[in-house]
């Protein structure tokens, strides 16, 4: 797969169809991978990588990349295409400056999960059936793939690319996923239990802002949390409860626009299940205003910025919030 992708990138660069390529670059370890922009075939040969750890969603990087001259080639996994569409819809990406190539994905691995199994000193990882063969400095280890798979990939919503100029491999389908199971568990808690759950989770937050910085829905020219005039940034520092509200406010800001790509939880160094806040909104929007998937297209009107006579009355929404 990596070879086909690299060849495609070099081919498009060579014939001048694109000027830059956005993909992933090797890090210090095989699982330590970051998004990167490549301008030459040499750079690609040297550093380009696409493997079981290239989870990062590169769509958000196109906000900046499409402000520059020239066309950029982006390799998009199915879930990334939803983010890409949503950004096009919000006029944050100039789609005419992007050449998108859809690449298949059957789930990415989470290095944190592997480490949690007590496996360290990883040198390389190879798939073997439904098992992983891990070569570590302390010897060979094996692990079931499902035990190492990213949480978000275990509840994958779609293997279908909702947009692409070209596709490598076969396109998949939208899949019926179990992604709302955990939200349901939270809903079944008492208000106090739920409050305690979120306080304990959100208290871990170190306000590194990684979730916001990686989120493809968080592309504001100036985030309200960075804007002293908004009066919000000072507030967040007032006490620990206000601090916790950061994530709740952020979830409100991306409500109806979040495509559920799961990047927020992936990058959280404290492993806070932030995606659950967004999923709660998605579940509520689906049940109150009809099924809606942000980023599934570029022209439909999102439920929260649209009004239909069939929309449920505000009182119904209100009643659901009352315990």
């Amino acid at each position: 797969m990596q070879e086909a992708i690299i060849n495609k990138a070099k081919e498009l660069l060579a014939d001048g169809r694109v000027d830059r390529v956005i993909g992933w670059k090797k890090g210090e370890f095989s699982y330590d991978i970051t998004p990167a922009v490549f301008e030459t075939a040499e750079e690609i040969d040297a550093e380009f990588v696409c493997n079981d750890f290239t989870s990062a969603n590169v769509s958000k990087y196109l906000v900046k990349e499409t402000k520059k001259d020239g066309t950029v080639l982006a390799f998009l996994k199915p879930c990334d295409t939803y983010s890409f569409n949503q950004l096009v819809k919000e006029h944050r990406i100039d789609a005419s400056k992007v050449y998108t190539v859809g690449i298949p994905c059957d789930g990415k691995l989470d290095p944190e999960k592997i480490k949690q199994k007590g496996i360290s000193g990883i040198r390389s990882i190879e798939k073997d059936g439904d098992m992983l063969k891990i070569d570590t400095v302390y010897g060979d280890e094996t692990l079931k793939i499902s035990d190492a798979m990213s949480e978000r990939c275990l509840s994958c919503k779609s293997r279908k690319h909702v947009c692409y100029d070209e596709l490598i491999g076969e396109d998949g389908d939208v899949i019926s996923s179990n992604r709302f199971d955990m939200v349901e568990q939270l809903e079944n808690m008492s208000a106090q239990e739920r409050y305690d759950f979120w306080r304990s989770q959100l208290s871990k937050c170190i306000r590194c802002n990684a979730c916001r910085n990686v989120c493809p829905a968080c592309t504001c020219e100036k985030c309200v949390f960075d804007n002293d005039d908004s009066g919000i940034s000072n507030k967040a520092a007032a006490d620990s409860f206000e601090e916790n509200m950061f994530h709740v406010i952020r979830a409100f800001h991306v409500a109806g626009r979040c495509t559920d790509c799961g990047e927020c939880s992936r990058v959280c160094p404290q492993n806070i299940p932030l995606h659950l806040l967004n999923r709660k909104f998605i579940k509520d929007i689906n049940s109150l205003y009809g099924e809606y998937q942000a980023g599934a297209d570029t022209d439909s009107r999102a439920p929260l910025t649209d009004y239909k006579q069939s929309d449920c009355e505000a009182s119904v929404v209100h009643e659901r919030g009352v315990e």
Binding site: E90, H91, R92, T219, C220, E221, K222, A302, T305, D306
Partner: peptide, 21 residues
Amino acid sequence: ELMCNGCSSCEKVCPYGAITY
């Protein structure tokens, strides 16, 4: 204008068609 993302959310909810880009 310095903070506006140009995302069109406001245009979509404006009941009077008062917002353009």
